[in-house]
Amino acid sequence: MDNAAGEIPAVDVRGLTRCFDTGSGLRKRGRTLVAIDGIDLRVDQGEVHGLLGPNGAGKTTLCKILSTVLLPTAGTVRVLGHDVRTDTAAVRAAIGIVFGGERGLYGRLTARQNIEYWGSLYGLRRAAARERATELLARVGLADRADERVEGFSRGMKQRVHLARGLVAEPRVLLLDEPTTGMDPVASRDFRVLIEQLRNERRTVLITTHDMVEAEQVCDRVSFINGGRILATEPPSVLGDWITRFERVDVAGLTEPLCATLAGQPGVGDVSRLPDGRARFETTETGAAARLVTELVSHGVTNLAISRPSLEEVYVHLFGTNGMAVRR
């Protein structure tokens, strides 16, 4: 279905299911693993959409299906109106994919040669591919290292080459599978700038991550995925709310009576003891951490630390205790 502006969606997923047979050998008859379980997802053109979930949630499987390298078991998946099962050529011409990680590049080639090669596979002529490689490597901050072999690059630098590779064909839809893994903070900031540029160019970006802060900063909408299902799709502002809502306060040298008193305060959820003896208070509402700290200081307790919740903790709070289990 088109959106209000009459545009076809960049990504239109309906009732998508993908199962894997875990058996081995010629006659695979092992257990069936449901990696994606009947999900619906719509991403409009020009949108930066985050897919947030833990390992094994189904994020990468969805990216692979969108990029035509994996067939759906059931359901329909369209990219800019093209079916990934039957219109593979049209889908492939429209997308760029960044799988990321240490692998996926030709280590014996330089960064420039890698990008030129991938450009040629998208039909770029030699001169155009060379020009594009120069431009993209400058854009991802590798202009000075463009003629070095990729095998000598750090993980973060390889990740930048992956990004450049994904952009080589100027795709209308860019699929980024955990693109900032291994990047240092400076590179991550550069990445956010890059996403902003892509947004301004009205490219559609689907980005998978398990970094809530990253998702909050770069996405227009975020879908929470786990166990092969999309649990919710929200604006990124809710992430900021959840991050402050589910903060952790770790306190050293806390007596049991005071601990019990503070545990009963409004907005304080679970209280547990860490292996080093510190007490951990998990809050469940915005402002509870600040109130707790004030109370602790008033009792002379100053050896404390506030930290942000992990994605796991947020999932446990929001979607239940089994939220992060990696299924077998």
């Binding site: 990029s67 390298v69 050529a89 492939r92 994919i97 799988f99 596979l121 998208y122 039909g123």
Partner: peptide
């Protein structure tokens, strides 16, 4: 995978 995902 990335190769197969190209139009080539």
């Amino acid at each position: 995978e990335a190769l197969v995902a190209t139009p080539a």
